[in-house]
Amino acid sequence: MKFRRTAVAGVAVLALALLSGCNDGQAGGQGGDGAALEKVNYLTSFNTFGREAYAYVALEKGYFKDAGFDVTITPGSGTVDVLKLVAGGQADYGIGDFTATVITLGKQKLPVTTVGMIHQRSLAAIVALEGGKISKPEDLPGKKIGDQPGSTNTLMFPLYAKAAGIPSDQTKFVPNPPPALPQLLAAGTVDGIGQFVVGVPLVEKAAKKKAIVLPYGKLLPDLYGNAIITRADLAKDHPDQVKRFTGALLKGLQDTIDDPEAAAQTLKKYVPNTDVAVATEELKLMKPYVKPDDFSGPLGDVDTARVQKVIDAVKGADKEVNPALTPADVVDGALAPKG
């Protein structure tokens, strides 16, 4: 099935073509058992910020190759675009925010499913600056928030607003490209920006001020963060491949949270404009979202009962979401990591 893609998604498609073979550290050759490597295209959730380093760690350390894959990593352009590109076959695996995935799949049928979680807690947040107009959720009505059109933070805002007891339609989201957001906030052009919690070091570096962070997860603790997404046909017809790929990616994630600075250095090898100090701080902030203090499951764990809670919350905040949506429509529980 063909999908009409946004201009941003079109750029991602072009990038897939241009970058194919660029990750030559593991390109071609054979796996550990001598078999030919399977070519796989992977999309990050968004760009190549420090939070995406784990895929490059898996590539650099040979985890993908050991699992039988020749992986090309391409910068993603947000959850909705990642979903559509994976659904349309332009990528085999991708990363997207789970709640945004539930919202999207609750409004349109796409042949994709979730097979594991990167973050056990949501990273979504509204970020402002000390001394500005926003210091608490009750300050948000009447304010301007800069964000990428269709971003995770924008999609999820009605859910957050309901939890905060504020009207969602009185906060104006101003469309802006993500690279410009920290500068717009620093200049006072907007009152806040949609941002992941781990993006705070980059914001503070640009603004030269301390950030005020309103994390969605504080009011909505059941929300997951980013999830591993693949096509429904791959999950159904090639479950072993999915498990091998997910396992290799999660090995990279474990190494990344164990040694954030080394992971940031690895990211810089593949993405030369990486600011290692900022990327390292991002990854340090990310660790408790990957493995919260009260979490005892395996890395990547998916709790079906919790997925149902997320679905129920989304339905309660967005009446356009299909009321018949179930966990099986968004997650393949049989392929998620098990303890």
Rank of each mutant, 00 (worst) to 15 (best):
A7G: 10
V8K: 13
V8I: 08
A9P: 01
V11Y: 04
A12P: 00
A12I: 15
A12R: 01
L16S: 10
A17T: 10
L19R: 15
L19A: 14
G21Q: 10
C22H: 13
C22N: 11
N23P: 01
N23H: 12
G25C: 09
G25F: 09
Q26T: 11
Q26F: 00
Q26C: 04
A27I: 08
G28P: 07
G29C: 08
G29V: 12
G29M: 06
Q30V: 15
Q30L: 13
Q30K: 14
G31V: 04
G31I: 05
D33F: 07
G34K: 04
G34T: 09
A35G: 12
A36I: 05
A36V: 10
A36W: 06
A36H: 07
L37F: 03
E38A: 11
E38M: 09
E38R: 12
E38F: 02
K39Q: 08
K39Y: 02
Y42D: 01
L43W: 05
F46C: 10
N47Y: 13
N47L: 15
T48P: 00
T48K: 04
G50V: 10
R51C: 14
R51Y: 06
E52H: 06
E52C: 13
E52R: 04
Y54H: 15
Y54S: 14
Y54W: 14
Y56Q: 02
V57N: 06
E60I: 02
E60T: 11
E60W: 01
K61I: 02
K61A: 07
G62Y: 05
G62H: 05
Y63M: 11
F64E: 06
F64S: 08
K65G: 12
A67K: 10
A67E: 01
D70Y: 03
D70L: 13
D70E: 14
T72Q: 11
T74R: 02
P75Q: 11
S77R: 05
S77P: 05
D81C: 01
K84Q: 14
V86C: 03
V86F: 04
V86Q: 00
V86N: 01
A87C: 06
A87G: 09
A87V: 00
G89I: 13
G89Q: 07
A91F: 00
Y93S: 01
Y93A: 00
I95L: 11
G96V: 03
G96P: 05
G96M: 02
D97V: 09
F98H: 06
A100M: 03
T101I: 11
I103Q: 11
I103W: 03
T104S: 15
L105F: 10
L105S: 09
L105I: 14
K107M: 15
K107S: 11
K107I: 13
Q108S: 13
Q108Y: 06
L110W: 02
P111Q: 12
T113V: 08
T114E: 03
G116M: 06
M117R: 01
M117F: 06
I118G: 01
A124V: 13
A124R: 03
I126T: 10
V127E: 09
V127F: 00
A128R: 01
K133E: 03
S135M: 02
K136A: 12
P137H: 03
E138Q: 12
D139Y: 04
L140V: 09
P141E: 06
P141V: 09
G142F: 08
K143N: 03
